[in-house]
Structure formats: C-alpha cells, structure tokens
C-alpha cells in the first residue's frame, strides 16, 4: 500500500479522476436528453481519454486528442446541433418500450465478454523493449519513412471527405 502523499500516490489519484471523467462523460453523452449536453459529455470523455494517453507515455497523441476531438469534432457537432437540432426535451419517445432494456442487456453482455477476455488472457510483453522509443522524434521519422504511403493516403481521404461534405451540404441550398 503506497501512501497518498507521494508522487506515485498523487498520480494514481489523478488517474482515478481521469477514469471517473471518462466514464461520467460517456454516460452523459449517451443518456442526456438535450443534444448540447451530450456533446458536452463527449468533450469531457475525450479529455479523460487524453489523460489516459498521457499516462501511456505518449503526450503527443494526448495533445492531438484534445486538439482534434475536443477542438474540432465537438465544435463541429455543436454547429450541426445549432443548424439542425430539434429540441428533444419534451418529446414523447416513439421507440418500443423494450428498446432501452434490450440495448442495456446487449451492451452489458458485450462489456462482460470483452472485459472477461481481457482479464483472463495471459498477456506476454515483448522481450526487447527499448525505453526511449516512441518519442515525438521517432513518431515523425516513422511517419515519413515506414508509414509514408499511409500518410499520403490519409491526406487524400481527408481531401475527398472535405470536398464530399461540401458537395453534400450544398445540395438544395439555392432553393
């Protein structure tokens, strides 16, 4: 049992905070009645996940997570909610009554299966682990050497996505 007032203890406490942030954010994102609140929950959840990435020794990916997801994706979804979102707050649910419990059952079974699998398996860590790999410099080097083809392809995908979304959203605007 380590003491709370050491560096490890405090970082463990912060980690517990990140777990709470992520799970609470995810629950708010799926259960809130109004869409703006769900987007806010999603942003909370992404902040927690960025914290996990920091604990997993990759601060660059953590910063990218905040920049892209919280700063890009969430803001875009908020724009869409303002353009198209109807207030769901006092609307009667038209779903079957069974949908909620069945969804809970299915996702509960999935979580049980996946978590059980993760906990029961014997994971073998690699033998030749090098301490200083995975820094930002290594990341940039392998993006421009080993993964340069996928890097170019993902740029093309993003370009096509941008042009495609412009074309899609433009339809019927002149009416």
């Amino acid at each position: 049992m380590i003491s709370l007032f050491t560096a490890e203890g405090l970082s463990g406490l912060l980690f517990l905070g990140f777990i709470g942030l992520t799970l609470a954010g995810a629950l708010i994102a799926t259960n809130a009645r109004s869409l703006i609140r769900s987007v806010a929950g999603l942003a909370l959840c992404f902040l927690g996940i960025a914290g996990f990435y920091y604990y997993l020794n990759s601060p660059f990916v953590a910063l990218m997570q905040i920049l892209i997801y919280v700063g890009g994706v969430c803001v875009t979804i908020i724009f869409a909610v303002m353009l198209a979102g109807s207030s769901e707050v006092n609307k009667v649910s038209r779903h079957n009554v069974l949908v909620g419990p069945l969804a809970f059952l299915v996702s509960g079974l999935l979580v049980w299966g996946l978590a059980g699998l993760a906990l029961k398996t014997e994971w073998h860590s690699s033998i030749f682990y090098v301490e200083n790999w995975g820094t930002v410099a290594n990341l940039g080097q392998s993006l421009l050497t080993t993964y340069s083809m996928s890097f170019e392809l993902i740029s093309v995908v993003l370009l096509v996505a941008v042009v495609g979304s412009l074309v899609l959203a433009r339809q019927g605007r002149d009416k």
Binding site: I19, T22, L23, A26, L27, A29, T30, N31, L35, S38, V39, L42, C45, I49, F52, Y69, V73, I77, A80, V81, A84, G85, S86, E88, S93, R94, H95, V99, G100, L102, A103, F104, V106, S107, G108, L110, V111, L114, A115, A118, L119
Partner: peptide, 30 residues
C-alpha cells in the same frame, strides 16, 4: 482494457437507444 470495453459498451448502448442521427454519431465516436 476494461475501460476501453466499458467505452465500447456505452457506445453500443447509445447507438441502439438514441433516436436522432446526431446522438448516434456521438455514440459512434465513443
């Protein structure tokens, strides 16, 4: 791994139970 499984499960739950497209998109992000 357990947290990732929980996020996946919560996302599936939202995807099934949500009634509008933006809510389903949010669950897919999870």
């Amino acid at each position: 791994l357990v947290i990732a499984a929980l996020l996946f499960g919560i996302g599936i739950y939202g995807l099934v139970q949500r009634q509008n497209f933006i809510g389903m998109l949010i669950s897919a992000e999870l």
